[in-house]
Amino acid sequence: MTKAEIIDRTYEKVGFSKKEATDVVEATFDIIKNHLEKGEKVKISGFGNFIVNSKSPRKGRNPQTGEEIIIAGRKVLTFKPSQILKQSLNNSPSPSSSSSSSTSS
């Protein structure tokens, strides 16, 4: 699935133009990115949380030369899926295997 397909789905759901659907979907991701860039958490209930974590600098080694180097501290983005998303992935039948009907035995 790409952004184009997400746009199609919103376009089908709400009755306005394709152009407008495109603008709103683009704006949505734009807004999320702007907040993450500021280091803010973005929590989407039913989907998951996007969290910016700070990594402190640490020592590493170039495995080829054995040379010790400092790996700089940096900020990384992690996604924590919501309980609801995890459940919906495990309650719906898997398309690749037909042996997923044993939830509790």
Binding site: T2, V25, F47
Partner: peptide
């Protein structure tokens, strides 16, 4: 409705085990 559709369609895609690329 739009925001819910965006994330809802992503959840649907994941249920189908489709890769989502934005």
């Amino acid at each position: 409705v739009i925001i819910n559709t965006i994330f809802g369609s992503m959840v649907d895609a994941m249920e189908r085990e489709e890769r989502i690329e934005i």
